[in-house]
């Protein structure tokens, strides 16, 4: 996967349920510079649908969304 991507912020979303994973990503996206990347780890399977939808709606980009065991790992790039 995207091991070569530089991560600017790690976000622990484990244990959080809808809509909080999306809300936390939204609240933290301005904590990285434009072009910066958040690596977020969630346990709520719903985040697999919600975070890409959030990115589409807000004009940001999900570089990857992968299931790793019981966790869901997202790389989210701030585009604006």
């Amino acid at each position: 996967m995207s091991d070569d991507v530089k991560v600017d912020l790690e976000l622990d979303l484990k244990g959080l349920l809808c809509p909080l994973p999306m809300v936390k990503v939204s609240q933290n996206i301005t904590n990285v510079p434009v072009g910066g990347v958040i690596r977020a780890v969630a346990t709520d399977p719903g985040a697999m649908a919600d975070i890409p939808a959030w990115a589409q709606s807000t004009g940001n980009e999900v570089l990857s969304a992968e299931k790793e065991g019981a966790e869901f790992v997202f790389l989210v790039k701030r585009l604006k």
């Binding site: 809808c18 809509p19 999306m22 809300v23 939204s26 939808a53 709606s57």
Partner: peptide, 12 residues
């Protein structure tokens, strides 16, 4: 409130 918070997070 889940919908409202989700919408606010999505920039609405």
């Amino acid at each position: 409130f889940i919908i409202a918070n989700g919408a606010a997070a999505m920039g609405m």
